[in-house]
Design a binder for these strands. Sequence first.
DNA 1: GCATGTGAATAGATTCACAGCG
DNA 2: CGCTGTGAATCTATTCACATGC
Lengths: 223, 223
Amino acid sequence: MEDLPHIPEATVARLPIYLRILLETADHEIGTISSERLAVQAGANAAQVRKDLSYLGSYGTRGVGYDVELLIFQISRELGLTQDWSAAIVGVGHLGQALANYRGFGERGFRFAGLYDVDPRKVGETVAGIEVRHLDSLAEDVVARRIAIGVITVPASHAQEVADRMVAAGITAILNFAPAVVTVPDDVTIRKVDLSIELQILAYYQQRKTGMTGLLGHRAAAL
Amino acid sequence: MEDLPHIPEATVARLPIYLRILLETADHEIGTISSERLAVQAGANAAQVRKDLSYLGSYGTRGVGYDVELLIFQISRELGLTQDWSAAIVGVGHLGQALANYRGFGERGFRFAGLYDVDPRKVGETVAGIEVRHLDSLAEDVVARRIAIGVITVPASHAQEVADRMVAAGITAILNFAPAVVTVPDDVTIRKVDLSIELQILAYYQQRKTGMTGLLGHRAAAL
DNA sequence: GCATGTGAATAGATTCACAGCG
DNA sequence: CGCTGTGAATCTATTCACATGC
């Protein structure tokens, strides 16, 4: 298999996990790893690991396993992590500040190159060593600081508007933390992280467990 | 379709989105909504909306659409949101504090009933109106405060240990923000939110766009 | 007539199972 | 002989298309 045929979405989502495990493995000075071992550590199935890795090419050795360093390089290259990426955070609330301070983003070349808000009390402040600028400065900064990724941490009511401004500013990859459906043009990639949806999903599965106490799956004692 | 046959995972993940849209729709005093309209607002396909909703039962009216209030109730019931849920956050770093302060969790009956850390400088402090307690108190609090959900916001190196203590304390639903694979027994539901993985996925798709400039998809100018 | 509800068709992801190679 | 690489089989999810019923 060669370079261009694109990788299934589900595989792309797992490559970063493999990469992290491989980096840890390399730290332990282990030179080679089997799909079985990688699968156990990733909480997956060995056949899946092999199939996923096969989309990158044939970098394993039969009877031996995968060379850890080689695989780190190949996955990094495939994910585009051989270059550095600059991101802008729009919305300097609790979450925006937490992200700005989050160590472990550098995990693979991500840098927050800008923090934006419209609140005059926040503009001019410094958070995590970055000066908060007015959202109006975003467009010029995208060019000047080569910002490629936008992170939305504003309230839901402003999320679409912020996304529109990001797109207008030339950003084509967005990570949305606001609890709102945001639509963007086809050439813009958007992903969402929605904390309250995650909790609701957990609640569903949790209810299935405890709700089984009554005969008909009725609701259990609420608090 | 009746009560027990369980709902596909993909559908469960979308129900909270529909619910949110329906709540907004209700705010605008609109009594009825079509699958088409719901689909547009959720960024989905009308057939999918109908199929998803059909797992809850037949709550639509042909030729008309769905009664907004009725659907809100049915989805809420299915997701287990007719009861309140208490969650504990373990790890009072930037992210843990941001979550504790996050308004909009109450969006459907979630309450943070406990904040835990092991750092003596943090234990005893108050964050978002909640006293930070030592992780050792978790087990007793799970019982006393009926905590059902655990949220992990500690560094990756401690995530598994914290998860183990949550499980030992009787928690059976966990949301993990630490960039680490955490394993739990089968009867425990775990979901992960991994910020750096999300950025890496964006980087992949971003690269596909810009990386096409060179003939062979080689890496572009790094900064 | 119009929008739901749903079988049937399609697409996508996971797992199996084994041939192929070091 | 052991572990990769991958077609084939299976399972899950999405989309189509239309019969059904208000």
